[in-house]
Computed example of a mutant assay.
Amino acid sequence: MELQFLGTGAGMPSKERNTSSLALKLYEERGTLWLFDCGEATQHQILHTTIKPRKIEKLFITHLHGDHIFGLPGLLSSRSFLGGEEPAPLTLYGPKGLMKWIQFTLELTKTHLNYPIHFVEIEEGVIFEDEHFIVTAKELEHVIPCFGFRIEQKPLPGELYIDKALELGIPKGPLLGKLKSGEDVELEDGTIVRSKDVTGPPKKGFVVAILGDTIYCKQSVELSRDADIVVHEATFDHATAKLAKDYGHSTNVDAAKVAKEANAKYLILNHISSRFLPRDLENLLKEAKKVFPHVFVAKDFSSYQWKNGQLIDLSAKNL
């Protein structure tokens, strides 16, 4: 799993940061990616990455403020005109009103899509579940309805003890794969080899909390409980805490408090106000680390890989 930030600014674009959008790359897990929010010029940001819009399987919108949705009509339209294979169906999750806005925009502009969109106007609770993932939404505390999401990967198959399987007569090939995936298999002589006898215990999947705009609230903590990664807005800093509260936003210290109370492993600060210049980022980081030690400040195009229980900053690795 990999997170790539396409826009990390707040309110409006700046020279340093575009408006909100985040890609959750699940290429190894399901061969697709999920997009969270789609601020103005998100498709332009995508042009500077290896992301293929036709691979976007699901798109989650936290709330209907323009810096989180104004890039959506353009991206949906362009997805129809890309070369190569026909775009797959797209599921669009968001607050009530999103479907009406998109359908009206497409109709008014006579925009035809060559793929279907399935709209899910979300309420609190589980909004998606299959055999591999479960996504839960909770309403946060902002100036308009705004949601946060908890993405949980279900337990993965345990390690396959190949030597033990071979000793029991399992030939090399597809039967080994079935055992690893949890299936029992039957040999030609009728012997049943049980998966649990040749595999280790299931491995814990990852948990990511991606939160929309909000003041500090208990819902953020609940979504982030024991999460591996929390992506939390930090529009303001400790010195501008009053402004944060007045405008329904959080500070870097608020975000750190959420991560600490939730017993999360890592925190990524996002949605940074343009009032903070590159030289200010070190102070944003230091303030947050006084409360919670494992913190990153996202920048546009930053990439973070989750591997073997560790969060790796790929951007720093490439410097």
Rank of each mutant, 00 (worst) to 15 (best):
T8C: 13
M12G: 10
R17C: 13
N18A: 13
N18M: 13
N18H: 07
K25E: 12
T32V: 11
L33Q: 02
C38N: 14
G39N: 01
E40K: 15
A41T: 10
T50S: 04
L59E: 10
G66S: 12
F70Q: 14
G74D: 09
L76M: 08
K96I: 15
T105L: 08
T109M: 06
K110W: 03
E121L: 12
I122C: 11
I122M: 15
E124Q: 15
E131P: 00
I134G: 02
K138E: 14
G148A: 05
R150S: 10
E152A: 08
K154R: 01
P155F: 12
I162L: 15
K164Q: 13
A165P: 09
L168R: 15
G169H: 12
G169M: 05
I170Q: 04
P171L: 11
G173E: 06
P174K: 14
S181M: 14
V185I: 15
G190E: 02
G190I: 05
T191C: 06
K204C: 08
K204T: 13
K204R: 14
E222K: 01
R225T: 05
I229H: 07
H232W: 03
T235F: 06
F236Q: 07
F236P: 00
H238W: 00
T240Y: 07
T240R: 00
K245Y: 00
N252P: 00
V253G: 04
D254W: 01
A256G: 05
S273H: 09
R279E: 14
L284N: 07
L284A: 02
F292N: 03
F296M: 08
Q305N: 02
W306C: 06
Q310Y: 08
